[in-house]
Amino acid sequence: MARSLKKGFFVDPGLWKRVDKAQATDDRKPIKTWSRRSQITPEFVGLNFEVHNGKGFMPVHVTENMVGHRLGEFAPTRQFKGHQPHTKR
């Protein structure tokens, strides 16, 4: 179910402030954030983020066609290392 359009994008207020500032000062230092639920708005494009995945921070560089996705989509929370190899006895 998609989010109602009349509500607009959701971005955590704190993160929004930092994005605003980064864009104003042209600061490309990665922004550390836990706010995986924040949607990527056009203002995010070109910025670097470090999105928490529950364990550490995943670097995410935002490009134009990521707009509309959420930050968390780019920082997987699970890591599949593969099954144990099939051993011959």
């Binding site: 490009t63 066609n65 990521m66 996705h69 968390g72 989509e73 780019f74 997987p76």
Partner: peptide, 12 residues
């Protein structure tokens, strides 16, 4: 292709 190119969860 777009989903896969941007490395998002759905693409993966």
């Amino acid at each position: 292709k777009r989903l896969q190119a941007i490395q998002c969860y759905r693409g993966i």
